[in-house]
C-alpha cells in the first residue's frame, strides 16, 4: 500500500503530561513510541484498559492536543502543520458524556454542527432525519436536549459524528454507558455507515472485547502508552492457536491458591474469577497434556468440579496473553 491509502499514520509519537497535583509532581508518559498506520476504508480498533492512552491518541489525531514529540498525519496532513486542513474532513465523538446545548432541540443541535461545516440546511435536515431514524430516535427530533435521557443524548452525539460525512471518524468508546439495545443500535449504525460509504475510515476505541472483535477489521492492543500488537482479530487469535484454553467452573476453592495451579508444569496462566454460582477458572495451557495434573490438584483439594469446557481463543485471551491480566480487572486479580 502506498501513501495514498493511509488515513492515519503516526511515527514515534509520544505524549507526556505534566502532573501538577500537590504531592505528586512530575511527568506522566501517556503515549510512548507509537507507530501506527490505518488505511482508508478500515474500521480500526484501539483496545486497551483505563489509562492506556487511547483518548490521548485520539486527541492528538483530532488536533485537540499537540504531541510532545514524534509526528502524526491524518489524510496525509501533519496535525501540527495544518490542523485547519484536517478539521473539515474529520469528526469525533466521545462516549460516556452528555455534551450538547440543553436548551436546543435534538434537531437544532445537529443542524448547528452541520452549519460549522458549511453543509447547506436542506442537506443537513435530510441527513439528520435519516440518522435519527437509524438511531431509533426520530420521535425525539424536536425534544430539547435537556429533556433527553443520557443514553439518548449520547446517541444524538454519535449521530453528530456521522452528520458531517467525515472521511475519518474518531469514536472514543462510543458505547460506554449505553444499555444493550442502544449499544447494538450504535454498532449497527457504524457498520451500516461503513458499508454505505466505502473509503471512509473509522478509528474506534473500546475496552469491550466483543465490540472490537465484532466490528473491527484490525485491532491495536495498547497498554501503558505502547502498542503491543496490531493485526486482524483472526491473526491475533492465531497467535494463541497452539495454546489450549480451558474454562473450568468449580465450587469453593477450599483454600487452594490459584498461584499453586500456575506453578504446575505446562500451565501458562490461570485467570480466577468469583461468579455468583462459584468460581470460574480460565486456564491457559501450553498443550492439553497439562490438563491432567491440573484436574488432579483440584480434586486433591476437594474442589468440586462443575463444568469443563475447551474453547477457542478470543480477543480477550490475546489481551490477557499480552498484558498479563484481563481488561475488566486490575493487576493481580488472577491470584485471587
Amino acid at each position: 500500500m502506498d501513501r495514498q491509502d493511509w488515513a492515519i499514520r503516526t511515527e514515534r509519537l509520544r505524549r507526556v503530561y505534566k502532573v501538577r497535583e500537590p504531592g505528586r509532581k512530575g511527568e506522566l508518559v501517556a503515549l510512548d513510541d507509537v507507530n501506527l498506520t490505518v488505511y482508508r476504508g478500515e474500521l480500526f480498533g484501539l483496545l486497551g484498559p483505563n489509562g492506556a492512552g487511547k483518548t490521548t491518541l485520539i486527541k492528538i489525531l483530532t488536533t485537540l492536543l499537540a504531541p510532545t514529540s514524534g509526528r502524526a498525519w491524518v489524510l496525509g496532513i501533519d496535525v501540527m502543520e495544518a490542523p485547519h486542513r484536517i478539521r473539515p474532513r474529520i469528526n469525533m465523538v466521545s462516549g460516556g458524556e452528555t455534551s450538547g446545548y440543553g436548551l436546543l432541540t435534538v434537531r437544532e443541535n445537529l443542524w448547528m454542527f452541520a452549519q460549522f461545516y458549511g453543509i447547506p440546511s436542506p442537506v443537513a435536515h435530510r441527513r439528520i432525519r435519516s440518522l435519527l431514524e437509524q438511531m431509533n430516535m426520530l420521535d425525539r427530533m424536536h425534544t430539547k436536549l435537556s429533556d433527553l435521557s443520557t443514553g439518548l443524548r449520547q446517541k444524538m452525539n454519535i449521530a453528530r459524528g456521522f452528520l458531517t460525512d467525515p472521511e475519518v471518524l474518531f469514536l472514543d468508546e462510543p458505547t460506554l454507558g449505553l444499555d444493550v439495545a442502544a449499544a447494538r443500535d450504535v454498532r449497527r449504525m457504524i457498520r451500516t455507515w461503513m458499508a454505505a460509504h466505502p473509503g471512509r475510515t473509522v478509528l474506534l476505541t473500546t475496552h469491550y472485547m466483543h465490540e472490537a472483535e465484532e466490528l473491527c477489521d484490525r485491532v491495536a492492543i495498547i497498554h501503558g502508552g505502547r502498542i503491543l500488537a496490531c493485526d486482524t482479530p483472526t491473526n491475533l487469535k492465531r497467535r494463541l492457536q497452539r495454546e489450549a484454553i480451558f474454562q473450568i467452573r468449580t465450587g469453593p476453592m477450599n483454600g487452594l491458591n490459584p498461584q499453586t495451579l500456575e506453578r504446575l508444569p505446562g500451565v501458562r496462566r490461570i485467570l480466577y474469577r468469583v461468579t455468583p454460582t462459584g468460581v470460574r477458572l480460565d486456564c491457559y495451557l501450553e498443550d492439553e497434556a497439562a490438563l491432567g495434573p491440573l484436574i488432579s490438584t483440584l480434586t486433591e483439594h476437594r474442589v468440586r468440579l462443575e463444568a469443563l469446557e475447551k474453547r477457542e481463543p478470543t480477543l480477550e485471551d490475546v489481551f490477557v496473553h499480552m498484558v498479563g491480566h484481563g481488561l475488566d480487572e486490575g493487576e493481580g486479580t488472577h491470584a485471587g
Binding site: T62, T63, L64, H84, R87, P88, I90, N91, M92, S94, E97, T98, S99, G100, Y101, G102, F113, F116, Y117, G118, R160
Partner: peptide
C-alpha cells in the same frame, strides 16, 4: 457547562 468545547474546537471554523 455544555461540554461542547472540544467539538466546536475541532470544527473547520
Amino acid at each position: 457547562h455544555y461540554r461542547t468545547l472540544r467539538y466546536v474546537y475541532i470544527t473547520p471554523v
